[in-house]
């Protein structure tokens, strides 16, 4: 295995790990808020569950980037390509947008989801608005996903 391959694998791992940490924090935070609402009114379970799940998508995006990277460098097929150092660095850097934006956007989305859950607790009719506010944060995770995908396929 070359240093290039090792760097590409490191990029894939960082994308999956950082986005995963962000999502775990975001979903966990929203889960606490959702549990609080359900303690008072178990009938709101369905409504708050949707809001709780929103920060979970970044973890999936991170997994997708890791999967594409590993597939591109042949690790998944069991036949790793011999990448140069520069190619390895390129894969590593290509994974970074998803890693960093995934981490921060999931935490921010988690906070917005908590606020949305609390909005739903007080005014159940306003749940849609709470979802839109949280979904706005998703935009930036999708942009980062797009940049990472374009970069990986462009190498």
């Amino acid at each position: 295995m070359t240093l290039g391959v090792a760097l590409a694998i490191a990029g894939a791992v960082i994308a999956a790990v950082m986005s995963g940490i962000g999502s775990a924090k975001g979903v966990g935070m929203a889960g606490q808020a959702a549990a609080g609402v359900c303690t008072e009114d178990p009938n709101k379970f369905g409504k708050v569950l949707i809001l709780q799940l929103l920060p979970g998508t970044q973890g999936i995006y991170g997994l997708l980037i890791a999967f594409i990277t590993l597939s591109q460098i042949g690790i998944l097929g069991g036949n790793p390509e011999s990448l140069s150092l520069y190619e390895g660095i390129a894969y590593f850097v290509a994974c970074l947008p998803m890693a960093f934006v995934g981490l921060w956007s999931a935490i921010s989305q988690g906070k917005t989801a908590v606020a949305g859950i609390q909005l739903t607790a007080k005014n159940p009719d306003q749940m849609g608005k709470g979802m839109i506010f949280a979904a706005m944060v998703e935009t930036y995770a999708i942009l980062a996903l797009l940049v990472s995908i374009l970069a990986i396929f462009g190498i």
């Binding site: 929203a30 606490q32 549990a35 303690t39 008072e40 859950i117 909005l119 607790a121 007080k122």
Partner: peptide, 13 residues
């Protein structure tokens, strides 16, 4: 305080 504040919000109604 996310859990506690959510319960408070439900009660505020």
């Amino acid at each position: 305080y996310a859990y506690a504040v959510s319960r408070i919000k439900a009660r505020e109604a």
